[in-house]
C-alpha cells in the first residue's frame, strides 16, 4: 500500500457523541484511518462497537441528535466536516455509494427496478432515458442477473433476497462511485448466496478501481475480502493493519480473543471448548478512561486505567499498554 500518496478518504480523530437522558454516550471515540483508491477496508466489531455509526458519519447520514467532530475528514480533497447538505447530497449516490444489510430498505417497493436504477443515474448525471436504460441493463448483467432487460420492469418483491442485493449493488455502481460503503451487505443472506455476493463485490471493486469500506461482524468475511482490517471495540479502532498481519499475528488481546471464540474448521478440535471473552461491553456513557477492554482482558494491569499508547509499526498498529500485545503472557512465542 502506498501510504505516501494522498488517500481517497482520510479520517482523523472521528468522535461521535449521543446525548442521552443519563449522560453523553461516547459511541465513537477518536478513530483514524486512511483509505486509498481501489483498497478494501473491513471494519469488524460486535454490536454496539460503533462500526455502523462510523459509516453513517462519513456519509453525513447521522441522526440530528448525534454530535460529530473530527480533526480531519476528507474525501478526495473535499472537507466532509464543513460540506453543506447540498454538497453531501451530490456526493452520495454519485461518488460515494452505500449498500445496506437489508436490500428491501434501499429499494422502494412501489417502483420497478429499472425506474430505480435509472433514477440513481439521472439524479446525478444529465443523461437521456435511453442511455440510462442501457447503463442499467449493462450493470444488471455485470452483477450476474440473467435476462437483464426483462428484469427492468419487475418490482423488488418479485426477486429473491440474493437477486435484490445484486440489484442494490448495481444501483450503487450506476454512477461509477469512487467509494462504496457496505454495511453488513451479506448478513441477511444464505451462506451460498453470501459467497456469490462477496466475490461479486471483490471482483467489481477490483475491476473498476473502487475503494470499499465493508462493515461486518463476521471474521470470515473480513479475512477473505479485506486488504486492510480495522477491529473496532467500544468506539475505538483497537487494531488496524493489513489482513494477513491482523489474522496471522493478532496483537490486541481483543482480536486474539475474538479469533479464539469462533470454531475454525481444521484448526479447532471438534467439540472442544471454545475460547470466550468473559463479561460484556462496558457502558460508554459518561467519562470513559483508559482501555475499554480492560474489564474483560486476561492481561489487564493497573496501567490499563491510564491513557493507552498506540503500539506497533505502521501499517499494523494497536492500542494496548503491553508493547507486545501480551503474547508472552499467553505462552506463545512473541
Amino acid at each position: 500500500m502506498n501510504d505516501t500518496a494522498t488517500p481517497l478518504l482520510g479520517v482523523r480523530g472521528l468522535t461521535l457523541d449521543i446525548p442521552m437522558s443519563s449522560g453523553v454516550l461516547h459511541a465513537v471515540r477518536g478513530i483514524d484511518f486512511d483509505l486509498h483508491r481501489g483498497e478494501t477496508l473491513c471494519i469488524v466489531g460486535e454490536s454496539g462497537s460503533g462500526k455502523s455509526l462510523t459509516s453513517l458519519a462519513i456519509m453525513g447520514l447521522l441522526d440530528k441528535n448525534i454530535r460529530r467532530s473530527a480533526e480531519r475528514m476528507e474525501f478526495d480533497g473535499i472537507d466532509l466536516l464543513s460540506a453543506s447538505r447540498r454538497q453531501m447530497r451530490s456526493l452520495r449516490g454519485d461518488r460515494i455509494a452505500m449498500i445496506f444489510q437489508e436490500p428491501m430498505t434501499s429499494l422502494n417497493p412501489a417502483y420497478t427496478i429499472g425506474d430505480q436504477l435509472m433514477e440513481a443515474l439521472r439524479l446525478h448525471r444529465n443523461v437521456s432515458r435511453e442511455k440510462a436504460r442501457a447503463r442499467a441493463v449493462e450493470l444488471l448483467e455485470k452483477v450476474g442477473i440473467t435476462a437483464a432487460a426483462s428484469r427492468l420492469g419487475q418490482y423488488p418483491h418479485q426477486l429473491s433476497g440474493g437477486l435484490r442485493q445484486r440489484v442494490v449493488i448495481a444501483m450503487a455502481l450506476m454512477c461509477e462511485p469512487e467509494l462504496i460503503i457496505a454495511d453488513e451487505p451479506t448478513t441477511a443472506l444464505d451462506v451460498t448466496i453470501q459467497a456469490q455476493i462477496l466475490s461479486l463485490l471483490v471482483e467489481l471493486t477490483r475491476e473498476m478501481g473502487v475503494a470499499m469500506i465493508l462493515i461486518t461482524h463476521d471474521l470470515g468475511v473480513v479475512a477473505r475480502v479485506a486488504d486492510k482490517v480495522g477491529v473496532m471495540y467500544a468506539g475505538e479502532l483497537v487494531e488496524t493493519g493489513p489482513a494477513a498481519d491482523v489474522f496471522g499475528k493478532p496483537l490486541h488481546p481483543y482480536t486474539r480473543g475474538l479469533l479464539r471464540c469462533i470454531p475454525q474448521p481444521g484448526k479447532t478440535q471438534r467439540g472442544a471448548e471454545l475460547g470466550t471473552i468473559p463479561g460484556i461491553v462496558p457502558s460508554l456513557i459518561g467519562d470513559v478512561q483508559g482501555c475499554a477492554f480492560r474489564t474483560r482482558c486476561p492481561h489487564a494491569i493497573d496501567a490499563c486505567r491510564d491513557a493507552i499508547p498506540e503500539r506497533g509499526t505502521p501499517p499494523h498498529e494497536f492500542l494496548c499498554v503491553h508493547p507486545d500485545g501480551a503474547r508472552a503472557a499467553e505462552g506463545e512465542p512473541a
Binding site: 453470501q194 466475490s199 471474521l219 477473505r224 494477513a244 489474522f247 479469533l259 475454525q264 474448521p265
Partner: peptide
C-alpha cells in the same frame, strides 16, 4: 460440497470461494 465451500474461514490467504451454484434457489 457447495455448502462446505461457501464457509468462510478466517484465513486471509484465501479469497472468496466459488460455490459453482449458478442458479438461484
Amino acid at each position: 460440497r457447495a455448502l462446505l465451500n461457501s464457509v468462510l474461514t478466517p484465513d486471509p490467504s484465501q479469497g472468496v470461494p466459488d460455490t459453482q451454484l449458478g442458479a438461484a434457489y
